[in-house]
């Protein structure tokens, strides 16, 4: 790669100005031509659809299309911001997101570190395969498992509780258990899968560092603290920053599956609300407005977190 890009680079005069740029482009045309399909892909499939967001400011009618739908300014944003339950939606969204950052984000790192310390390769591979299997189950199936365990009538956990002499608990219909169930099932399903990326980062740490540390007399824990963790820190920071950018996205699929009338109080989030009103009557404009709001907030948070992180750890997305 290095060689390829260094060959056509102009050795001397690199004049500025349009003429110089044109010359530069012509000289390196092969590379630019190779770039074209990728650029076209981005423009056609990412940027052009992005412009569809303007329907957030329209009273979008599918038969009139984007060009002929009437403009309504900030009507949908107003409707969204004056929604009586907006506070509840935001609080639920942020709280669940925060719990996920707190508990679900470190889980795969911990798992990867534990797996990394294993000696038996066979055991390590087996465990790894087993723990990332749940990733391939759909939420419908995971809800089925959860129901089998938590059901107040037939659930395993409730059978246990009853045999210990306590009252059965209707976990799935009580608001106070909702967030724990969401975060817990999320960890169960995704931890193994998310650990893969950290394992890859761990494999990239040079073994010579460990050897040197051993010679210096560092024990396993000290090695972990001074070599392993700093080694995967860039990966952790990048993933954390990306996660913060998505703080208002919780994935409607999981929560919608678990939600019912009694758990709205603690579990109704932006995504499920959008889904509910979206399917009610094709409310494209309102849902787009909410989506836009989420993206803007996510973007701002990510920029902020990136700055902070650069200051503190020196790592960042860009």
């Amino acid at each position: 790669m290095d060689r390829a890009s260094s060959i056509p680079a102009p050795p001397e005069k690199r004049r500025s100005g349009p003429a110089g740029l044109l010359k530069f482009v012509v000289r390196n045309r092969a590379l630019y031509i190779m770039l074209l399909p990728g650029l076209a892909y981005l423009v056609i499939f990412k940027y052009i659809p992005l412009s569809g967001s303007v329907i957030a400011f329209q009273n979008f009618n599918i038969f009139k299309g984007i060009w002929h739908s009437e403009w309504v300014g900030f009507k949908w944003f107003e409707q969204f911001f004056t929604y009586p339950q907006l506070r509840r939606l935001l609080v639920n969204t942020l709280l669940i997101s925060f719990y996920q950052l707190l508990f679900a984000f470190p889980a795969p790192i911990l798992l990867a570190l534990l797996l990394n310390e294993l000696r038996s390769m066979v055991f390590k591979r087996t465990v790894q395969t087993i723990v990332y299997l749940p990733h391939f189950f759909s939420w419908t199936i995971v809800f089925g498992f959860t129901y089998m365990i938590l059901s107040v009538q037939t659930g395993l956990l409730n059978n246990l509780i009853e045999s210990l002499g306590f009252e059965r608990i209707n976990f799935l219909q009580k608001a106070e258990y909702f967030r724990s169930i969401i975060v817990g099932t999320g960890i169960w399903k995704e931890t193994g899968w998310s650990a893969i990326i950290f394992l890859a980062a761990l494999a990239g740490i040079s073994p010579t560092l460990y050897e040197a540390a051993k010679i210096d007399g560092a024990n396993r824990f000290q090695q972990l603290l001074h070599i392993t963790l700093p080694g995967i820190m860039p990966t952790i920071v990048i993933l954390l920053l990306l996660r913060i950018g998505n703080i208002l996205d919780l994935g409607a699929e999981q929560i919608y599956m678990f939600l019912n009338e009694l758990t709205y109080k603690t579990g109704d989030v932006l995504d499920t609300y959008t889904y509910r009103i979206g399917i009610l009557g094709g409310q494209y404009s309102l849902t787009t407005a909410i989506g836009l709001f989420k993206s803007v907030v996510g973007f701002l948070l990510m920029v902020l977190a990136n700055r902070l992180s650069k200051k503190i750890t020196g790592e960042g997305l860009y």
Binding site: N260, R276, L280, Q283
Partner: peptide, 24 residues
């Protein structure tokens, strides 16, 4: 069909309170 905003008020409102009454 009603105006979208009103449609939400019709279809998406009473269930939560009804559940509170029945269950709690």
């Amino acid at each position: 069909p009603l105006d979208q905003e009103l449609q939400i008020l019709l279809e998406n409102s009473f269930q939560e309170t009804a559940a509170e009454i029945v269950v709690n």
